[in-house]
Simulated assay, not measured.
Amino acid sequence: MENELIKIEDLSMTYGKKIALTNISLSLTSGKIIGLLGPNGSGKTTLIKILNGLLKAYHGNVLIDGQPIGVHSREIISYLPDESYFLDWMHAKDALSMFRELYSDFQYAHCIELMTRFNLTPEMKIKSMSKGMREKFQLCLVMSRKAKIYILDEPIAGVDPAAREVILDVILNNYAEDALVIISTHLISDLETIFDEVVFIKEGKLIMHENTETLRNDRHMSIDELFREVFKC
């Protein structure tokens, strides 16, 4: 049975005079992988930050697992930002300890197993990792939580094509079947086969929320082709 894990009603937000989101209403249920798609500046990152409690000056209602954003939502959302948030002095083992202290659902041993797949060790200094290595490490941390909701912002943007298949495998095989996974990406052709639904956002407005198979059958095109058609200049 599907549970409504995210319910958004009439969500709007501005940065000064710049409109970031306008009257977004959206319901996302458990057991789905959702592609959050839109060009740069469409409002995707703003929406993600609101869901994670990082932005609060918005209008409208947002419920996570039936509750307002707060302690409970932080406990059940595992978030992969599109930028590294580690301090320069940290080694991987320091970040592992931080996650183990912050999140009761963090599986330390499982994270070490995932890191091994990417040739990462706890002794590595994070600052000396390449961008791709840092992204892989952060993904290992995020996918080692037993969360209800995973929000991944550009999880394959900084890695080479050869590693993307492994990253997809890590994502697909490390969450419970009744969890909700939201993936924001520009690399649609690499990820669209795993999406159950897609959400298109354009200039801060929700323009589409559909089942991917329905879209492919009705439009006779891939999600990547549809994206290019909807957002062409």
Rank of each mutant, 00 (worst) to 15 (best):
N173W: 04
R219V: 01
F200G: 04
G204N: 10
K205A: 14
E213F: 00
D178I: 10
T212A: 01
I183S: 02
M221I: 06
E213T: 05
E165Q: 13
R145K: 15
N217K: 15
L187P: 02
M143V: 13
H209Y: 11
N174W: 06
V170Y: 01
H186V: 04
V199T: 11
A157L: 12
E210N: 12
E165K: 14
N174F: 04
F227L: 07
I151C: 08
S189R: 14
N211L: 01
Y150V: 11
E203N: 15
D178Q: 13
I223T: 04
T185M: 01
E210A: 11
D169M: 05
E210T: 12
N211R: 04
H186T: 03
D224Q: 13
E154C: 09
K148F: 05
V166A: 13
I188L: 09
K148V: 10
V166Y: 00
V199W: 01
A179Y: 08
D160L: 11
F195Y: 13
A179V: 08
L191Q: 08
K146I: 08
L172I: 10
L141Q: 09
S222G: 08
V181N: 02
A162G: 01
F200M: 13
H209T: 10
M208Y: 04
L168P: 00
F195Q: 07
F195H: 07
I151E: 12
V170H: 07
V199E: 01
N174T: 06
H186I: 03
C140G: 06
P161A: 06
D160E: 14
D153A: 06
A147M: 09
L172Y: 04
I167F: 00
E203K: 15
D190E: 15
A157V: 12
T212R: 00
I149S: 01
R216Y: 05
T212E: 03
F195V: 10
L191A: 06
A162K: 14
S189K: 14
A176C: 05
E197W: 06
R164T: 14
I183M: 12
L152P: 10
T193N: 12
L180M: 11
A162Q: 14
R164V: 15
